[in-house]
Write a protein that binds this DNA or RNA. Structure first.
Lengths: 216, 216
DNA sequence: GTCTATAGAACGATAGAC
DNA sequence: GTCTATCGTTCTATAGAC
């Protein structure tokens, strides 16, 4: 049968499916999101998912991969720029976290605004219990965490390796928690706006994580 | 028909179901956890869940409620003790977070060790997308957050209300992320122990959140 | 490539014997 | 209270017409 490997004249159906899947996965998680939901929201036929992606699992792997990879590229690019800019001096913790957190919240590209569905999807992907996510985590997080841990160790030589790993873990946890923890997010703003203020969230997040990581 | 409202001579079946549900919910989330899984793990009959709890939804509401309520009581008790002990002086942020975070990780009671299944279950409950969780959050979090925000405001009068709410939200996110974010948790210890070191996690968590909250 | 129709399996819930 | 058996629904995935 052979799945579609390359783009053709029209990827509209494929794209519509991915976009709908993003939103539904963000809202309801993997198990609660059904292919009927997806194809209905995308306004395509039910069979289209299996034709284009082979399976529900593959659809989500592809959806998540296509979003995370550019973000991780941007993260490492900014980290490299920081290292370059500071020469032999270590990069401040807040600048390191800035390069790690910002790209997620500028998910549609720098100078573009944040994409709530995309932010939530990634947050949920890393807290999703489904088995097939495990490998994704390894693929997308191993190199990234190694690079960031290396740089954080250089900036904070007074902290032993184990402490650095714990605090890095807590920093990642804060970021992920902030993206999916709708509970407190709703109670945050005194105004009853449905849309969270991501600009405020991300700058607070960076300052919070930097202070939490760097404390005596 | 009438559900069982009061305890009878033997709550063994009921208890076994709740315990099994906790573990499975912690591992797989609400939708992936089936009643067939639960009753099989509990070694009881499939129909027992609907007899004792009426529905799958009700089972999890009861399981979560029975765990969170004692923890919240303990939290507020410790907070009240802190306020009492400090008299008119404000309670330090780290002490406030100590009273908020510790009870979850001493979930089987003080002097008892942490209960991984319980910790994960509560973390997952607050990040679960399922609709029926929404009301639970309101029930178990509204009063708690009000009390803690009041006390944090007294301790940090230099911070405006909105900033306090944002940082409190981030602190809760850190805690929740730490309980369910298995990804990085696995990569944490250089030793390949399956069991996370909760003692280390919780003390790092409290110091981290206090520093993150209290920064200039 | 896109559709209809359906296979095949799993689910929550319940009826009714004991 | 506890069991077996099953109803009615919903899911992913696929076969086959167009």
């Amino acid at each position: 049968m052979s799945l579609r490997a390359t783009s053709s004249t029209s990827d509209k159906t494929r794209q519509k499916i991915v976009r709908a899947a993003e939103q539904l996965f963000a809202d309801k998680g993997y198990q609660s999101m059904t292919l009927r939901d997806v194809t209905k929201a995308a306004n395509v036929n039910l069979a289209a998912v299996n034709y284009h992606f082979g399976s529900k699992c593959n659809l989500m792997r592809e959806a998540i991969r296509s979003r995370i990879e550019p973000i991780n590229v941007e993260r490492l690019k900014r980290l490299a720029e920081l290292i370059e800019a500071h020469g032999p001096a270590p990069v401040p913790v807040s600048a390191i976290f800035n390069s790690l957190f910002r790209p997620l919240f500028e998910s549609d590209g720098p100078s573009k605004g944040p994409n709530p569905a995309l932010i939530q999807m990634i947050g949920r992907a890393f807290t999703e219990p489904a088995d097939f996510m495990r490998n994704l985590h390894k693929d997308f997080f191993t190199e990234l965490s190694f690079r960031y841990l290396t740089e954080l160790k250089r900036t904070c030589p007074q902290l032993d390796e184990e402490t650095i790993r714990y605090r890095f873990f807590l920093s990642i946890s804060t970021m992920l928690g902030a993206t999916i923890n709708t509970v407190t997010l709703e109670n945050l703003s005194s105004s009853k706006s449905t849309e969270p203020n991501y600009d405020k969230i991300v700058s607070e997040l960076i300052a919070y994580a930097a202070a939490g990581f760097d404390h005596a």
